[in-house]
């Protein structure tokens, strides 16, 4: 094809101008000064859709396409390989532990920050965000420096035959560390907005502290808490950097799904790599839907 792109685009403009001219005129006559002109709305929406397609939709579809490139049987074989299953299992374990620990400690942190007054509160609030602001590689290195052979607790751990780095506990620690802010960050603004009056009311009605927490505080924040759990889980399963540092990459033992994908890819097993990757991509889609649902519920409770 040998058309001149400049002319082509000029033609397009003319075409647009003629076909939309009446609409534009009518639109202008009805303009109330607030709305952007129609052509601008369409152009901006078009640009946004174009970029979404290029950068998100096509890669995502490609993940599934590559995964199934050699047929369903090969796909099933790839994800049921013992090393793949071990990686899936380890990922699930790390995510479950991270979710449970962060729900407990994130809730306690949010409670302390929003319901009590104490010195150093603002420091605690910034510390909550620390895992977000440091590179995941550093998050991993921290644990090597603490528990590694050359680390502070290394010799003692070795003497007592406890393995943390390059073993499952290290992976769990790193995962908990990088996901810590999610629950606390979801809860703090909501609990701050709700104040402590509900708790005071429950208390003066004779309820114990535990009853107040489970019957009043928790129901008030449950959707935000679930939202935090969702994000924690998504990040825990997808975490690469911090886990990569502490893992040691022992196949079938200390590889999580993202690490396993990298190894497969480096060994030119593209189909298998994409097969495992498709599971993570699927998780992302589920997370996305759950996120939208939860956001609606939260909007309703904070009304």
């Amino acid at each position: 094809m040998s058309f001149n792109p400049v002319i082509q685009s000029q033609e397009t403009v003319d075409l647009l101008a003629t076909s939309f001219a009446p609409a534009l005129v009518m639109h202008r006559s009805r303009r109330d000064g607030r709305a952007d002109p129609l052509w601008l709305q369409w152009t901006l929406t078009g640009v946004a859709l174009f970029f979404l397609t290029i950068f998100i939709v096509i890669p995502l579809v490609n993940v599934f396409a590559q995964a199934l490139a050699k047929g369903v049987a090969a796909y099933v074989a790839a994800i049921s390989h013992p090393d793949a299953l071990a990686a899936i299992w380890l990922t699930v374990v790390a995510a479950v532990v991270a979710v449970v620990l962060n729900v407990v400690f994130g809730t306690i942190t949010a409670w302390a920050i929003t319901k009590y007054e104490f010195r150093g509160k603002s420091l605690l609030i910034s510390l909550v965000d620390l895992p977000f602001s440091v590179s995941p590689v550093i998050s991993g290195l921290v644990f090597i420096l603490l528990f590694g052979a050359q680390g502070y607790f290394g010799p003692w751990l070795q003497d007592n035959d406890i393995k943390i780095v390059f073993a499952v506990p290290g992976i769990i620690l790193a995962t908990v560390f990088v996901t810590f802010p999610f629950v606390a960050r979801e809860l703090i603004p909501l609990m701050r907005e709700q104040g402590i009056q509900d708790e005071e009311a429950a208390l003066s009605l004779g309820a114990s502290g535990l009853r107040t927490f489970f019957r009043v505080t928790l129901p008030n924040v449950k959707w935000a808490l679930l939202y935090g759990v969702l994000l924690t889980n998504a990040r825990a399963m997808g975490e690469f950097g911090a886990v990569s540092v502490v893992s040691g990459h022992i196949r079938g033992e200390t590889n999580t799904m993202p690490l396993h994908i990298e190894i497969l890819y480096n060994e030119y097993q593209f189909m298998a790599a994409f097969a495992v990757a498709s599971l993570l991509a699927f998780l992302a889609l589920v997370t996305l839907v759950a996120k939208v649902v939860l956001e609606k519920r939260i909007a309703r409770t904070t009304r």
Binding site: Q197, A201, L203, S204, L205, G206, S208
Partner: peptide
């Protein structure tokens, strides 16, 4: 507060 048997209205 829980043991005082007061009714509190906010």
């Amino acid at each position: 507060a829980a043991e005082r048997h007061v009714g509190f209205v906010f």
